[in-house]
Nucleic acid binder design. Structure first.
Lengths: 150, 150
DNA sequence: TCGCAACAACTGACCAATCAAATACTGCCG
DNA sequence: CGGCAGTATTTGATTGGTCAGTTGTTGCGA
């Protein structure tokens, strides 16, 4: 007679939360100790670096890192003060503001990435290529089905 | 010539973060709308309900839900004020304080769980039993390897 | 072309977490 | 036995986020 609290998916969700925050707890401090870059900032920089022109609108950035636009405004403020990003105006639409990565941003990103990748490889050492591919695929499906919000 | 920013695991980590926060964004508000229970409270209650005597020490609870003990103290304060949990003293060690689920806590948990499970099933509708088993196994491995902190 | 609804970014008020230090207690070692 | 290092929890100060509402801009429909 399983209690209602035994639903398997609830546990799966709990596992997802735990896997994520343990990873964050393990890798975040390491990154910050290494180059002084908070992990959240790294996530912003890598997304900017991967975008055309090295820039993204505030809204798009908010979408990518799963923050509200208000949160992104403040995050970008701080990173701008540190010199890693700059705001660029959009010539076509004066409402939108781009956040672009600066040279200094690319520089610290390049300096941080190898160590971060090394740490990740250490955590995922026991995972085969097949495991990783399966994980990517499953996470991607969650990402998409969960995103189709009302 | 892949840039250093192309490391695959970095993307996987990003996917994990995104999958988690999208799920949270999708399910959290739904739960709160349904019974007024914030998702974080639900996570506390379900863990207490699953523990022997329906209780856990502050430290153990912090460990389970990946918060600092300071954070847990305040979270439990709020939940206690709402009547869902109570503090119980430990007879053997006066430093430790148990958080125990109350009848009111069990009641709202039971009232919240079916809807939450239903929503989860909706998100995971396209996942086969095999998919879910694989996901569980992979997440569990991350959870464990990431946990072995220095 | 004017008016207005929709939209992007930003801001003030607030909230919940963190960090570090304090408090309270335990149990071991000399 | 007495002191002290270690442990569990709480607390004060701070940070980084959300929410709701504002500002400035766009583009569409009458």
């Amino acid at each position: 007679m399983p209690a209602v609290t035994d639903d398997h998916l609830i546990t799966t969700f709990g596992r997802l939360a735990e896997a994520y925050s343990r990873l964050e707890q393990r890798l975040g401090p390491a990154m910050e100790a290494h180059t002084g870059l908070p992990h959240a900032w790294f996530e912003v920089l890598i997304r900017l670096a991967r975008s055309p022109e090295g820039q993204l609108t505030m809204g798009a950035l908010a979408e990518e890192i799963a923050l509200t636009t208000g949160g992104v405004t403040r995050l970008v403020d701080r990173m701008q003060k540190a010199g890693y990003v700059e705001r660029r105006r959009c010539p076509d639409d004066r409402r939108v503001s781009y956040t672009g990565i600066t040279d200094s941003g690319r520089e610290i990103l390049d300096r941080t990435t190898p160590e971060h990748a090394r740490n990740l490889r250490e955590v995922f050492a026991s995972f085969s290529e097949r495991d990783l591919a399966a994980l990517d695929e499953l996470l991607d499906r969650i990402r998409h089905t969960a995103h189709a919000a009302t």
